[in-house]
Structure formats: structure tokens, C-alpha cells
């Protein structure tokens, strides 16, 4: 990961192979069975999100009126009179749940990552600035965060989506990314600020000052690498939180719009047909739950690995 950015400047000495914070952390992380299993599962899920839709003979929009709300089967009738297969069954419009689940995975994961990236950028810049400058500016900036904190976010998402976001298509997706990311950076900002404040006072920063390191280099090479730990941990926990928010909104019919789909939408559709076609609910729920579990286990593992005293 970013282990090259810290340790010894110059790189030549690195042949001695000191054990940096990140080497240690990686060792501890890979010794954590739950985290490793979660990483492998998540890797498989990513691969399926990319290639999954191509593995089905049907596209995620294709309708087959000869086999609607059909159970998973290897020999289903097609509209033209032939036979085909549906590994996860079909929905009420005769669309392939297998293809739809993986398209949903793509959308949900994409929203999770992009919104987390947005929140990361805003949060880290805001928090680091606040912590680094300190004093009055810090006070005011943190008071603003306090105020934003006490606003019920889900209601803000809903208002914004009602007013601006229900146009459908890519624009709608971008809106979701931006809105969620722009409101989920607060904790990230607080964590970054706290870390910056504590790192700022450390001796090695003073030493770097004495050695004549410039302000920008100071932030980039000495402060940022040392505040990364908690930020990375929180980032891993933000992704599932965002996936949940998106699925919540989609469940209410406010998130991703037709014909595109996401796990939240699939679960909403599945919940309505639960009695007649339980497979519509089962598969999206299964994969979403696995994904959320994986992220949480990786987050916990990372926390233990990066901050052993917390165990």
C-alpha cells in the first residue's frame, strides 16, 4: 500500500528492510482469519460484479413472458419456443435475476466506492486543514461540523432526491454519489482533525521542522502518512454504510431508477413478491449481506492491525 511513502527517505537504506508500521500492520492483518476470508470473498464478489452479467445468456433488461416469476431452473421456455436456463430464476417481468443481481452489485458497489471517495476527499482536506491551522479557525470549522451532525441525514437525502434527483439514468446516479458523499464526510473530518492535532505535536514533526522541511512536504510526507491508519479503517466502514443508505433510498423508490437496478431496488421488488417468488428476495439479500459482513470484518481487522493497543 502506501508503505513506500513513510519509513526512510531516500530509499537506499531500505535494503536493510526495517519493519515499518505498515509492514507490521499487513502481517497482523493477514494473520486475522476473518479478515482474510472477508477479503477473498469480497474479491470474488468484485470479479462477479464485473463478469457476472456476461455469464448469463440474458441481459438484465431482457424480458421473457413465457417464464415470469419463474423459479431457478436449467430448462425454462423462451418466447420463441426454445429452452433456456435461469440460475437464480426470473422476476415478475421475466427478467433474469442472475444478471440483475450482478448489475445491482455493480451499481451498489460503485455507489459505495465513489461516495466514499467523495467523503474521503472532503473529510481529509477539511479535517487536516482544521487540525493543522488550529486555534480560532479550528473552533469555527468544528462547530460547523457539529451543526451538520445534528441534521437528520436521511431526510436531507430524501429532500434532495425528491427535488433534483429523480430524472433517471446516469445523472441520477451522479446525483446519488454526490449527495451521499457530500453528507457522509463529517466523521471522516473529525477523525482526520483529531489525528492531525495529535501528530502535529510529535517530536518527529519538530525534527522535520528543524531540518528545514517545507510546509507542503511536511503535510504530504510526515503528517498524512501518519494519520492514514484510522482514516483507512473508517473508510472501510463507510463503504458498507453508503451501500446501506443507497439500498434504503432505492427501497423507498427514490434511489436508482429503472431500467438500472441496485441491490436495494432488487430487494424492494423481491419483498413485494416474497410469497410467490422468494428467490427474487433471497439472492440480492444474500450477496448484499455477504458484502456488508466482509467490509465490516475487514474494517475490524484493519483496526486491530493498525492499532494493536486497542485490542
Amino acid at each position: 500500500m502506501t508503505d513506500t511513502s513513510i519509513g526512510t527517505p531516500g530509499g537506499k537504506i531500505a535494503e536493510i528492510k526495517g519493519r515499518s508500521l505498515w509492514d507490521d500492520a499487513r502481517r497482523r492483518l493477514f494473520a486475522n482469519k476473518a479478515a482474510v476470508t472477508a477479503m477473498i470473498l469480497l474479491g470474488l464478489l468484485f470479479i462477479m460484479a464485473v463478469v457476472g452479467p456476461f455469464l448469463s445468456p440474458h441481459t438484465f433488461e431482457e424480458q421473457n413472458y413465457a417464464y415470469t416469476s419463474g423459479a431457478p431452473t436449467l430448462s425454462a421456455p423462451t418466447q420463441e419456443g426454445g429452452t433456456t436456463f435461469y440460475l437464480f430464476g426470473t422476476d415478475a417481468n421475466g427478467r433474469d435475476i442472475f444478471a440483475r443481481t450482478w448489475i445491482g452489485a455493480r451499481v451498489s458497489l460503485a455507489i459505495g466506492f465513489v461516495a466514499t471517495a467523495v467523503s474521503l476527499v472532503i473529510g481529509v482536506i477539511y479535517g487536516a486543514t482544521s487540525g493543522f491551522i488550529g486555534g480560532r479557525v479550528d473552533n469555527i470549522m468544528m462547530r460547523i461540523v457539529d451543526i451538520l451532525y445534528s441534521i437528520p441525514h436521511m431526510f436531507v437525502f430524501i429532500i434532495l432526491l425528491v427535488v433534483f434527483g429523480r430524472s433517471g439514468g446516469i445523472l441520477n446516479l451522479l446525483m446519488l454519489f454526490a449527495v451521499i458523499g457530500a453528507l457522509e464526510w463529517l466523521t471522516m473530518g473529525r477523525i482526520t482533525r483529531g489525528q492531525t492535532l495529535s501528530v502535529k505535536e510529535k517530536e518527529f514533526i519538530e525534527a522535520a521542522h528543524a531540518a528545514g522541511v517545507g510546509r507542503w512536504t511536511m503535510i504530504r510526507r510526515h503528517i498524512v502518512p501518519n494519520i492514514l491508519g484510522p482514516v483507512v479503517v473508517y473508510m472501510t466502514l463507510t463503504v458498507p454504510a453508503v451501500i446501506l443508505i443507497e439500498s434504503f433510498l432505492s427501497f423507498l423508490g427514490l434511489g436508482v431508477q429503472e431500467p438500472l437496478t441496485s441491490w436495494g431496488r432488487l430487494i424492494a421488488e423481491g419483498a413485494q413478491e416474497m410469497e410467490t417468488a422468494p428467490w427474487m428476495l433471497l439472492f440480492p439479500v444474500l450477496f448484499m449481506a455477504v458484502t456488508l459482513f466482509c467490509f465490516n470484518f475487514i474494517g475490524d481487522g484493519l483496526r486491530d492491525a493498525l492499532d494493536p493497543k486497542d485490542r
Binding site: 446501506l244 439500498s247 427501497f251 419483498a271 422468494p278 449481506a289
Partner: peptide
């Protein structure tokens, strides 16, 4: 990890 909107329909069913 499991959202209430998943648990609720399952419980109801």
C-alpha cells in the same frame, strides 16, 4: 449489517 427492510419482510413472511 442486515438492514431493517430486509429483516421486516422476512419476519412478516
Amino acid at each position: 449489517t442486515i438492514p431493517s427492510f430486509v429483516i421486516a419482510p422476512v419476519l412478516s413472511l
